[in-house]
């Protein structure tokens, strides 16, 4: 085992010893950091779920192509070939007969339909584009409208645009919250490390007098900050997951009432790793700033 590795291992052990030395204080710090990270994480997850919801709900991001009434089988086949060639996403054909049957099935429509001299509905294609960005949807709809025998293209772009703008606003709010709470986490760690330095002043002085370098003295404090941040991140992941677990049945029930199979997405393993790593980096940063500011006063 190299001296470098041994010293880092010793510093990690020292940091763990310090955490364990005051379990209640450590626990409280972890909970505070956990709550600090919970708010932006929950916000981010809520936005992601909303984004996913809009993708799942039938019709919200679909384009309907209504063909001209005189369009025949050859025209339908040509449109199908174009859709296949352009690879725009998924699509399905709704024949005018099927459309009429559906309309007849609707309550109170049977008599009205029966009184009509002929089927007034056109053949249609319902396209679910692969690229659901509002600008892409608009460009696609415009392109469809230029195709032969396409009488009308319907895209609820205003709704999609509004929702997208809302999501972007949500993301911005979450980002600002994230920055704010990241600052809070750095401040919490800064303060904790300051107290650690004051409590360990005698030990730091002795170590310095018998040949400890700045790195040797700072290393356990850096580890302490990073460890506290990482554990705080795990605590946040636990809180967020618990909250989403509690919300999931109610959201699922609501989704069923709207005829969708939407399920609330919680934190994935990768998200937990990112959250803990973020906490660790922010904790290390707080420790680093505190060490630079306070250790120099002691030495």
């Amino acid at each position: 085992m190299s001296a470098w590795f041994a010293q880092h291992l010793a510093a990690l052990r020292d940091a763990l010893r310090r955490l364990a030395a005051a379990p209640l204080n450590s626990l409280l710090s972890l909970v505070v950091i956990g709550v600090t990270l919970t708010l932006p994480t929950a916000g981010w997850l809520a936005i992601e779920n909303l984004r996913q919801l809009t993708g799942d709900v039938e019709g919200t991001q679909q384009i309907s192509l209504f063909l001209a009434l005189e369009a025949g089988r050859r025209d339908v086949a040509e449109i199908e070939a174009r859709l296949r060639q352009e690879r725009v996403g998924r699509w399905r054909f709704v024949s005018r007969e099927d459309a009429l049957k559906r309309l007849q099935a609707a309550e109170g429509m049977a008599e009205i339909i029966a009184s009509l001299p002929h089927n007034p509905l056109p053949d249609a294609f319902v396209v679910t584009p692969a690229d659901t960005r509002p600008e892409s949807l608009e460009s696609l709809a415009e392109s469809f409208s230029r195709w032969p025998k396409v009488a009308h293209v319907q895209l609820d772009s205003a709704w999609v645009k509004r929702f997208d703008a809302l999501l972007r606003l949500g993301r911005l709010v979450v980002l600002l919250l994230g920055v704010l709470f990241a600052g809070a986490l750095v401040t919490i760690t800064f303060s904790t490390i300051r107290l650690q330095i004051l409590a360990q002043a005698a030990e730091i002085e002795v170590a310095r007098l018998i040949g400890a370098t700045d790195a040797f003295i700072q290393r356990p404090l850096h580890y302490f900050g990073a460890l506290q941040g990482t554990l705080g991140g795990l605590c946040a992941a636990l809180l967020v997951s618990a909250g989403f677990l509690m919300l999931a049945p109610a959201v699922g029930e609501l989704a069923r009432l709207y005829g969708t199979s939407f399920a609330l997405r919680g934190l994935a393993a990768g998200d937990v790793v990112i959250l803990s790593a973020t906490g660790g980096v922010l904790g290390w940063l707080g420790a680093r700033i505190s060490v630079l500011m306070h250790l120099r006063q002691l030495l």
């Binding site: 085992m1 001296a3 041994a6 010293q7 010793a10 002795v206 170590a207 018998i210 040949g211 040797f216």
Partner: peptide, 10 residues
């Protein structure tokens, strides 16, 4: 402690 500072193996 002084041995840890120098980095001697445990």
């Amino acid at each position: 402690l002084p041995l840890a500072i120098v980095g001697h193996p445990p």
